[in-house]
C-alpha cells in the first residue's frame, strides 16, 4: 500500500471532524473518497498532507508522515489539488507551473512541461497570461498540471469537477485516467459526483459524518443498490 491510514482523527478546533478512520491507497490506482457535504472528505485530504491537527497514523510507503510540516510531506511526493484550486492568481501560468516543480532539481522539468502542454493544450496558449484571468476549467487544469509537475507518487484531488461544465469535467476525468496509466501516479480522489468517481476508481470509501460507513471495490459499490440509494442518491 502506498498510503496507509489508521485510526485517523483530524479537525480544526477542539473537536474532531474525522472520528478515527482507516483507509488505504494502492500503488498505481485511483481510490475514491465519497460522501455528502460535511462528511469529512476535504478534511481527510488536508489531514494527509499535514495542513490540520491530526491523531492516528499516516504511513506513506511505510514511512510515518503524520505530524510533519506540509512542505516536508509534499517533498516526499504528495501533491495536492486543493479545493478552490489554489491558483496563484497574481502570477502567470508559467510561474504557476514553475512553482509546481520548484522542489525539483532534476533535468526532466523541461520535458515535463512539454508533457503538460500535451495533456492541457490550453495552458500552452495561456502560458504568459496571469493565472487569475483563466476560466474555472483552465484553473483546474493548471492546478492538476502544477501538482503533476512535482512528479508525485500520490496525487490528492479535491473535487476536480466542482463548478465546471460537464464537457470540461469529462475532459479532466479523461486526463486523470491517462495520467494514472502513463505516469504511475496513485490518485486519492474526493468527489461529490459519485457516479463519475466510481467510473474511474478501483476502490472506494464512503464517508459519513467523519466515519467510513462503506468500503470496497468501486465496481461492487456501483452495483450495490442499497448503498446507492441510501448514501449516493442516484
Amino acid at each position: 500500500m502506498l498510503l496507509d491510514v489508521r485510526g485517523l482523527k483530524a479537525g480544526y478546533g477542539p473537536t474532531w471532524v474525522l472520528q478515527g478512520i482507516d483507509f488505504a491507497v494502492a500503488e498505481g490506482g485511483v481510490t475514491a473518497l465519497l460522501g455528502a457535504n460535511g462528511a469529512g472528505k476535504t478534511t481527510t485530504l488536508r489531514a494527509v498532507c499535514g495542513m490540520i491537527r491530526t491523531e492516528g497514523t499516516i504511513n506513506l510507503a511505510g514511512r510515518a508522515i503524520n505530524g510533519r510540516a506540509t512542505e516536508d510531506i509534499v517533498r516526499l511526493g504528495v501533491a495536492h489539488v486543493p479545493d478552490g484550486r489554489g491558483t496563484f492568481m497574481e502570477l502567470t501560468v508559467e510561474e504557476n507551473m514553475k512553482l509546481g516543480a520548484i522542489t525539483r532539481h532534476d533535468k526532466g522539468v523541461a520535458a515535463d512541461f512539454e508533457r503538460m502542454f500535451e495533456l492541457f493544450p490550453r495552458l500552452k496558449q495561456r502560458f504568459r497570461q496571469q493565472a487569475g484571468t483563466l476560466s474555472g476549467g483552465e484553473q483546474q487544469m493548471l492546478a492538476i498540471a502544477r501538482a503533476l509537475l512535482l512528479r508525485p507518487r500520490l496525487l490528492l484531488m479535491d473535487e476536480p469537477s466542482f463548478g465546471l461544465a460537464p464537457l470540461i469535467v469529462q475532459e479532466i476525468f479523461g486526463i486523470m485516467a491517462r495520467v494514472r496509466d502513463e505516469q504511475k501516479v496513485s490518485i486519492l480522489l474526493v468527489e461529490q459526483n459519485a457516479n463519475l468517481a466510481l467510473e474511474i476508481a478501483d476502490h472506494a470509501y464512503l464517508l459519513e459524518t467523519g466515519r467510513i460507513v462503506v468500503s470496497g471495490p468501486a465496481a461492487d459499490i456501483r452495483q450495490d443498490e442499497s448503498v446507492r440509494r441510501s448514501y449516493l442518491g442516484y
Binding site: 495542513m51 506540509t70 509534499v74 501533491a79 486543493p82 491558483t87 510561474e95 514553475k98 509546481g100 512535482l150
Partner: peptide
C-alpha cells in the same frame, strides 16, 4: 530566480505555496 518566485508565491498565497513544497 527560483527563490524570488518562491518568495512571491509564499507572499501571495501561503497555503498553496506550502502545497508545492515552498518553505513559507
Amino acid at each position: 530566480t527560483r527563490l524570488g518566485l518562491a518568495m512571491r508565491a509564499a507572499a501571495y498565497n501561503p497555503a498553496s505555496a506550502r502545497l508545492v513544497g515552498v518553505r513559507v
